[in-house]
Computed example of a mutant assay.
Amino acid sequence: MFLDPIDFASMYKKHKSSTIFKGKKSEDWDKKSKEMAPRMQKSSYVEDFISRMDISEDDTVLDIGCGPGTLAIPLAKMVKEVVAIDFSAQMLQELQAYAKREGITNIKTHLIGWDDDWSHLPQVDIAVASRSMEVIDIEKALQKMSSQAKKASYLTYKTGGSFVDMEILDFIGKKIITKPDFWYIPLLLYKDGYFPYIDYIPTKDGSVKYSSAEEFVTSLIWSIGSLDEIQQQKAREYYKLHVKENNAPKPSMWAFIAWSSHKQEMIGCKLSSYN
């Protein structure tokens, strides 16, 4: 194949190591779990993701990086069983509390992440990874995901190479090295013999609100890692000019990528329509 001489896996690793956007540790997500859980659990993104899947009530699902149950809970209402894994203990506690409120009993949780041993996990019909693939070795992650699912896999990955709107970064004078964009994923899948399907999900992440300029600055630092004093002051100025009165984030665009577990086979997905 014409792609064979190109080592996309190594290109991704090199790009990932150079970007300003570094992966968060489990304790980082532990601290954010209570704050993030309500809006993640009620986001319209959930329906957009699930509506693109081909699932049945007899299916079993592996939810990788499940967070507070964003997909695991609604999927559990539609399928036989969900196996939910995450490396944040607090996120799993939020999921378990959410499941109890919803009367869900067909979810099994495991405190493990992408780099851990999955040999004790059961084979499932479908694997999903919703906004959870910020990994160092994307090729290994995709292979683990594919090998776990008997029917199909579905994931989402941020487009554009930045978790922060470039307009904001330009305004505050923050120069960044973008993170790897989603195109590495379909290229690696195609090289491995799969025919990936690609769609897009725009989202404003539910009810994200900033009650003050300081909260806005804190959110930027969470995503970027650091801002100097001048950049923080410019961020406060941006908040007053563009966020305070129109307190809603611009839509983020997520690439939705799906593939059949059977190589050289097309996957059945539902076509989307959005404004």
Rank of each mutant, 00 (worst) to 15 (best):
V217P: 00
P5H: 09
S211H: 10
Q90A: 13
E94T: 08
Y200K: 11
L142R: 12
F2S: 13
G206M: 01
Y238A: 01
I267M: 10
S226M: 09
A152S: 15
M40R: 15
G67K: 09
L169V: 06
M133V: 06
M266D: 08
R131G: 00
S44P: 03
S212V: 03
E139F: 02
V208L: 11
A149S: 11
A127W: 06
E265T: 15
E102A: 14
A258W: 01
K179E: 04
N246E: 07
G268C: 01
L155M: 15
R131W: 06
E139P: 05
G225P: 10
E214N: 15
K179F: 03
S212C: 03
K158Q: 07
K13W: 01
I64V: 15
E102L: 07
S18P: 00
A141G: 14
K14E: 15
S260D: 14
F195G: 00
I126M: 01
W183Q: 12
G225A: 02
K34W: 05
F163G: 07
D228T: 04
D58H: 12
R39D: 02
G225E: 03
I104M: 04
W254S: 11
S26A: 15
D48H: 09
H120P: 00
A141W: 09
S17V: 02
L71Q: 13
A248L: 09
K150F: 02
D192K: 13
S10M: 07
Y98R: 12
Y154L: 06
D4C: 00
R101F: 04
S211M: 05
T203Y: 01
Q148F: 00
M145T: 09
S146L: 07
S273N: 10
Q143K: 14
Y238Q: 05
I185D: 08
R236A: 03
Y274A: 04
D181R: 04
